[in-house]
C-alpha cells in the first residue's frame, strides 16, 4: 500500500512535470492567485501573451487554457494549434490528424488506451467532442482542443491560464524571468527547472501530508497485524516454548527466535509488497484513468522495508517478552 501510494504520488507529479517540459517552453507564466498544481483555475487576459512576446529574448510565447476534467489531475488543454506546434515541435500523430472543426479534439495514446478511444470516438465534456487524432503523449495534457472554443465553453472568453515562453538562448532565461517578474509583479513565473523541482511530492503539502498519513496508518496496521499474529503464535506454541525452556533455552534465546521470525516475516512481506507494487502499476496502467500514473520508486524500497521492520519489531516485543517470561512447568502442561 505504501509503495503503491508513494509510486502514485511520484508518478502523478513526475508525469505533470514531464508533460510541462514537453511543451518545449523555457519559462511558464501563471496568473496571480494560482498555484503550480492547479490545472484550471483563474484565467488571465490574452493580452498578457502579447506583452510577454514583446519582451527581449522571447522567441516564442503562446497561451493555453487548461481546464481540469474528470477529477483533480486530468485536463483538456485549449491550444492555438499552430503556436503550440511551433513551441513543442509538433504532435506526432499515431492515428488520424489535427482538429479542424468545433467540438473536435485530439487525445494522447495514454488517454486513448485508458478510455478505449479511437479516431471518431465521442468524449463527453459537457458536450460531445469527437476524437480526430491520437498523438504520442508527453505534451502538457492528455486532451487538446481549440482554445477559442474552450474559452467560450468554460466562460473564459479571451483568457488563458498558462503562458509558455521559449527564450532565444538558454543563457537568457534568467534575464527574461527577471524582466517578466518586473513587468508582471503579481504573476507566478517559473523556469522549467524550478517547476520540476517544485513538483516533487515533498514540495506539495497535500501529497506530502497524504503520504505521511498513509505511512502512519501502514505502521499502525503493520504493528497490529504482527502483534496479533505473534501473540497468537506465542499462545499456540506455549508447549513448544516450555520444551525449549526444559532443554535449557534462556529467555533471550526464546526472544531471539521470535525476533528472527518477525524480521524474516517483515523482509518477506516487504518483498511481497515490492512485487505487488509492480502488480498495482500494471493494473493502474491498464485499468485506471490516464491521470493515475504510477512509478516504481526504488528509493522507497529500503524505506518501506525499514518501516515494516520497525512496525513489526515493536509489534513483536510484547508477545516476545511474554514468551521469554513463560513459566516452563505451566507451558509444558499447556494443551
Amino acid at each position: 500500500m505504501m509503495l503503491t501510494l508513494v509510486g502514485l504520488s511520484h508518478g502523478i507529479t513526475d508525469d505533470m512535470a514531464l508533460r510541462n517540459r514537453g511543451t518545449g517552453a523555457d519559462v511558464m507564466v501563471r496568473p496571480p492567485s494560482s498555484n503550480l498544481l492547479s490545472l484550471g483555475g483563474v484565467g488571465m487576459s490574452e493580452k498578457y501573451v502579447a506583452l510577454v512576446r514583446e519582451q527581449p529574448h522571447v522567441a516564442l510565447a503562446t497561451g493555453t487554457l487548461v481546464q481540469s476534467v474528470a477529477g483533480l489531475f486530468n485536463s483538456i488543454a485549449g491550444i492555438h494549434l499552430d503556436e503550440f506546434n511551433a513551441l513543442s515541435g509538433g504532435f506526432h500523430y499515431l492515428h488520424g490528424g489535427p482538429f479542424q472543426n468545433p467540438h473536435e479534439l485530439i487525445v494522447d495514446s495514454t488517454e486513448a488506451r485508458s478510455d478505449h478511444l479511437h479516431v471518431g470516438s465521442i468524449v463527453k465534456l459537457g458536450k460531445d467532442w469527437r476524437v480526430t487524432g491520437i498523438v504520442e503523449g508527453g505534451k502538457l495534457s492528455h486532451m487538446f482542443g481549440d482554445i477559442k472554443l474552450l474559452q467560450d465553453e468554460y466562460s473564459q472568453t479571451a483568457k488563458v491560464n498558462f503562458i509558455w515562453v521559449r527564450v532565444d538562448n538558454p543563457a537568457n532565461i534568467p534575464s527574461v524571468v527577471a524582466e517578466l517578474k518586473d513587468k508582471l509583479p503579481d504573476f507566478n513565473i517559473y523556469t522549467m527547472e524550478e517547476m520540476t523541482s517544485l513538483l516533487a511530492p515533498d514540495n506539495i503539502p497535500l501529497i506530502k501530508g497524504f503520504t505521511d498519513v498513509v505511512i502512519g496508518i501502514a505502521v499502525i496496521v503493520g504493528f497490529l497485524v504482527v502483534f496479533l499474529s505473534m501473540y497468537t503464535a506465542v499462545l499456540e506454541r506455549t508447549r513448544e516454548i516450555g520444551v525449549l525452556k526444559a532443554l535449557g533455552a534462556s529467555p533471550s534465546y526464546v526472544l531471539g527466535i521470535l525476533i528472527r521470525e518477525t524480521v524474516l516475516l517483515a523482509i518477506a512481506g516487504s518483498i511481497v509488497g515490492i512485487v505487488m507494487s509492480y502488480g498495482s502499476q500494471v493494473l493502474l496502467t491498464n485499468f485506471a484513468p490516464s491521470f493515475l500514473t504510477m512509478e516504481i520508486v526504488k528509493l522507497w524500497w529500503p524505506i518501506a522495508m525499514g518501516i515494516a521492520l520497525a512496525g513489526s519489531l515493536v509489534g513483536a516485543l510484547y508477545p516476545g517478552f511474554k514468551a521469554a517470561r513463560q513459566d516452563a512447568i505451566e507451558a509444558l502442561s499447556y494443551d
Binding site: 513448544e240 526444559a246 532443554l247 535449557g248 533455552a249
Partner: peptide, 23 residues
C-alpha cells in the same frame, strides 16, 4: 534463574510422557 537455566542446558536431560518433540 540463569544458573538453573544453565543446569538444564548442561547437567540435566528430560524425557517426557508426551515426548514433547517440536512438531
Amino acid at each position: 534463574d540463569a544458573e538453573r537455566t544453565d543446569l538444564r542446558k548442561k547437567t540435566v536431560g528430560f524425557v517426557f510422557q508426551k515426548y514433547n518433540l517440536l512438531p
